[in-house]
Amino acid sequence: MNSPVDQAALARRFNPRGTWTLFQKEVRRFLSVIGQTVLAPVITAVLYLLVFQHVLEDRVNVYPGVGYTAFLIPGLVMMSIIQNAFANTSSSLTQSKIMGNLVFLLFAPLSAAEIFVAFVAAAIVRATCVAAALYAVGWLFIPLPLQAPLAAIAMLILSAACLAVLGLIAGILAQKFDHLAAFQNFFIMPFSFLSGVFYSIHSLPEFWEHASRFNPFFYMIDGFRYGFFGVADAPISHSVGVVILFFVLLSGVALQMLRTGYKIRS
């Protein structure tokens, strides 16, 4: 049952098949509980939509010619992207740490960058599934053709990537699910709520309008909204730039953690 040592495998400098396998495994993981990972977020967002459209449709008019429900949809889609990209990486990592099966990944000849790419890409796939499903359901409320589809897609991918990386960092740091829940409740939720999902920051008092400009999530939502309406609170180039910068910073931290094995390789 022995075989000569695979010299090609020994000399390999990259492990694309290993990376692809990890990516596929992460995608299958969320698909196997699709009710929780895709369906539930869509239902939550639709409930928000129903409630807020009912209460606010007649009262708020954010941009000329854009009704409140239309305004709300991109915000809700982006909020779901944010929460689900974060949840995918963080819960997978924390769970395999707690269950102990992370060792099977750590035994493998995969570099920090390869692990990073696989996890982040799978989270982007989940965020895209949720976004697409929600967009389709939103169409039943108001058909919303994309005015700048490239901007919308870029913001989708960049924002999902940012949150996936943030989820990796949180997953590395968390010792139990309580820690993740705390991170989600005290950081992700407030920052995404306060970033203009339900309102335009121009309608805020001056102080809060300025404060919002330091919230990277604001740019994710604003830039995404630009993709729908061709107008937004900040210039699209700013939004793209800020989110890329945020991604680069977070990736630096996450890669360094993975490389040194912080809290993973004790």
Partner: peptide
């Protein structure tokens, strides 16, 4: 680490699984 891990199979002490 790549050739080292490629050459090694480890059965861990604890029963762990996905």
């Amino acid at each position: 680490f790549r050739p080292a891990r490629q050459s090694l199979g480890v059965v861990p002490q604890e029963i762990v699984y996905d």
